[in-house]
Amino acid sequence: MRFRSLLRAAGLIAVAFGAAGCGVPGPATPAATMEPLRRSLSLGGLAEGEPPVTVSYLTAGDPAAARLILVHGTPGAADGWADFLADPPPGLEVVALDRLGFGESGPEGAVTDLADQADAVAALLPDGSRPAILLGHSLGGPIAALAAARHPERVRALILLAASLDPGLERIHPLQHVGAWAPVRAVLPRPIRNANAELLALKPELEALRPELALVRCPVLIVHGTEDDLVPFSNVAYAEAHLTGACRVETVILDGADHFLPWNAAPTVRAAIARAEGMAC
């Protein structure tokens, strides 16, 4: 009976995540077609004495061109960007990673520290011979912003796509605390388990990020839908107010658009990528 109760609780949490929009729409391109594009690299341990961590990623496009790095939200995986990999924006190499704790990247458990996540993104930045554009969707937004802040000489432009940046707007559903209880957590699917841990830790992580946003130096393009009920549209004003060191900040407002812009507003996202590629200080 106790195990049945745990499964019921786990099911309720999974339903809650779906109702909250974590059961996201997806690309038209089948995920299986992405496997020939898969690569991996090894990072050092996330803490002293810990084993190396594998970062899995997909790559397509022109390997000699500027690199576009796509950073997914929570939960998520690299193959959520399959449409952009199957048909890469012209004149770019496209790289989409499985963030730490998701897809085929390690570790098994959640990595809630935005700095650790940003370090994994930074490991995919090309050397100084090629520029990079970072695009972060949802929780991938603050991760991409932190990578741009800490590596200003290697990032040409930053795109914040429905990005969650304002700690004052973060809300926790009561069931998320149930999901953090060890017996329930143990029976949750890995993506939901790790997403729950990330969201529970996000508010203080965003508070710590606030001063670093001023260290972003590259042009920034903010794209957000007015009907986003997962990451409220008022995140735009917060981003504009705190990206004070960026040489340019432009905002694209999508009237009536929801949170799932990579799939529901793909042409706009592609236009934003083309716009960011041409932005200069």
Rank of each mutant, 00 (worst) to 15 (best):
L161A: 06
L202H: 06
D255T: 15
G44H: 10
I159P: 01
H177E: 15
L146P: 08
C218G: 04
R8Q: 14
E48F: 11
F260R: 02
P27W: 07
S138N: 08
G23H: 15
G61N: 07
A195T: 05
V24R: 15
V111T: 10
R39A: 09
V184R: 03
A186F: 09
P90L: 05
D83C: 00
V223L: 08
L58T: 06
V252L: 13
A123L: 09
H242Q: 10
V121E: 00
V15E: 13
H72R: 04
I143A: 04
P183E: 03
P89C: 07
P167E: 12
R150I: 11
A182F: 07
R270A: 09
D127G: 13
L160V: 04
V231D: 08
L114E: 03
I69K: 01
L160I: 04
V121G: 00
V24Q: 15
L230P: 10
T33F: 13
A110S: 05
L134Q: 09
P204C: 03
P262R: 00
E212S: 04
E108N: 13
S56M: 10
L230E: 13
A31D: 09
P107F: 10
A195K: 00
R185W: 11
A132P: 15
L43R: 03
R185D: 08
H137R: 01
P189H: 10
R185L: 09
H224M: 12
A16W: 12
P27K: 10
A208Q: 06
P131R: 03
L175N: 01
L161P: 03
G61I: 02
N196I: 02
E48A: 12
D79T: 12
R217T: 05
L146T: 03
D228F: 08
G109D: 07
D79C: 12
A10E: 01
A163T: 11
G21W: 06
R99M: 06
H173S: 12
A144Y: 11
P211T: 00
P152F: 04
T244D: 05
P131S: 10
P52H: 10
T74I: 11
P89H: 09
G140P: 02
T29L: 02
P90E: 14
L6Y: 11
A115Y: 12
A145K: 01
L37I: 07
